[in-house]
Amino acid sequence: MAGLNDSNLQIAKTIKLYINGAFPRTESGRSFPLHKFNSKKIYANLCRASRKDLRNAVAAAKSAQSGWCNRSAYNRAQILYRMAEMTEGKRNEFVETFVQTLGYSPERANLEVDRAIDALVYYAGFADKYQQLIGAVNPVSGPHHNFTTPEPVGVVGLLCREEFDFSHMIAQIAAITCPGNSLVILLAEEGAAVLAPLAEVFATSDLPDGVINLLSGFTSELYEHMAGHMELDSICFDGKNEKIRARIKEEAIHNLKRAIVKPQPDFTLEHILAFVEYKTVWHPIGF
């Protein structure tokens, strides 16, 4: 039995995609190795998602979105909070991933997990409040009741920053899903190993299938297709690469999807509001 502990004989993990609540391999049959930090050793093999995987993920997100936004805000809050609890439960796996693949110190890795949990809890608490802060009853001249409420923009594509930033990514996920959006996420290559514990968190938090879909792959291969996908209502990329930002903005114009390329601060209302639309309803007041 001792031989199995020899690192040369360990089975390298293969981390699969997370689409519609399931863990499929990429339909393309392609993978890419993720090395341990500063090492030639393979930490895991990751699926290299294709355009077709992206399409499947968008389809899943699209069909999950209305159910998700029609959940009560309280229920969405509960599920986000549950995600925080499950993240805490998988703390060691996250820490191990960060230490192994990103070279974080255990302290820093733990801090990242702390902050991620904070973000989930923060936005869990916002799910049933942001409407009151940005909604309005408008005093129109005339016998009409007029009110404005924020609604989720719909299906959001999230391209993670090139430099992996776990807690920011979780804040983005929480801020985007909290008002009822569904999400397709393409993880940054360098941090893609987090897909494994993260997908397990989502799969075990009572989150409806398809609300959050995780893809690993090459940003350079997929970002234009994501930005141009007509079923996405919004695309978010707040990385540094100006060229990618501009291309995303350009591709987004095909269906005028909202392109969010300015970094949104974590732990703010503004972050949620980047992913909502305002609906104003008029109704007469009469007998």
Binding site: A136, N138, P139, V140, S141, G142, H144, N146, T148, D233, N255, L256, E277, Y278, K279, T280, V281, W282, H283, P284
Partner: peptide, 21 residues
Amino acid sequence: GVIWANTYNKFDPASPFGGYN
């Protein structure tokens, strides 16, 4: 972005106006 229920084409400076998609 704007829903007119039992009315239509009403506008007011206090009422937000604009569209989805």
